[in-house]
Amino acid sequence: MMGIFSKIFGTDSAIQSGLDMIANAGDAIVFTDEEKAQQKVTLLKAYEPFKLIQRFIVMVFCVPYVSLHVVVIVGQLLGMNWGDISIMINDAFGYPVLAAVGLYLTGGVIPSRK
């Protein structure tokens, strides 16, 4: 159980290595293309724990969303009129699912403005 919490929130050594990386990166003012590429790889490695929690958030929202729609589809096939329930599901879960999937798919991809 503690293993999942250390993966989600990070360990002391991971936090310390991140702080060391920030301290060591402060001495360079001009970066070459190779240094920028290496820094991007290092940054993506630092994002790995956040990808785990992003997957968890996507699963928390998407599994009930899809499951509820499957129940509505089965109900429709059995002749029940559940069209209004489908609209309520979209109203309740639509934007949170969109936000969670958007966060997961674009995390670390969209460049920041400087």
Rank of each mutant, 00 (worst) to 15 (best):
M2K: 14
M2I: 13
G3P: 08
I4W: 07
I4V: 07
S6F: 01
K7G: 06
G10Y: 00
D12C: 08
S13G: 06
A14M: 07
Q16F: 07
Q16W: 05
Q16S: 10
S17R: 04
G18A: 10
L19F: 01
L19V: 02
D20W: 06
D20Y: 06
M21G: 03
I22N: 02
A23G: 04
A23F: 06
N24E: 09
N24Y: 07
A25G: 02
A28C: 06
I29N: 04
V30S: 04
V30G: 02
D33P: 02
D33K: 03
E34F: 01
E34D: 10
E35M: 11
K36P: 05
K36G: 11
A37Y: 04
Q39F: 05
V41D: 06
L44Q: 12
K45F: 07
A46I: 08
Y47G: 09
F50D: 12
L52Q: 10
I53C: 13
I53T: 15
Q54N: 12
R55Q: 08
F56H: 12
F56R: 11
F56L: 15
V58R: 14
V58L: 15
M59T: 15
M59C: 14
V60L: 15
F61M: 10
V63D: 12
P64I: 14
S67W: 15
S67P: 09
L68C: 13
L68A: 15
L68G: 13
L68F: 14
H69F: 14
H69V: 12
V70I: 15
V72E: 04
I73D: 00
V74G: 05
G75M: 01
Q76G: 00
L78I: 03
L78N: 04
M80H: 08
W82Y: 11
W82S: 02
W82T: 02
G83P: 07
G83D: 08
D84Y: 12
D84K: 11
D84L: 14
I85D: 02
I85A: 12
I85F: 12
M88E: 03
I89A: 14
I89P: 10
N90G: 14
D91V: 06
D91P: 04
A92E: 06
F93G: 03
Y95H: 10
A99W: 10
A100D: 07
V101P: 13
Y104G: 00
L105I: 11
T106L: 03
I110P: 00
P111L: 05
S112G: 11
R113A: 13
R113G: 09
K114E: 14
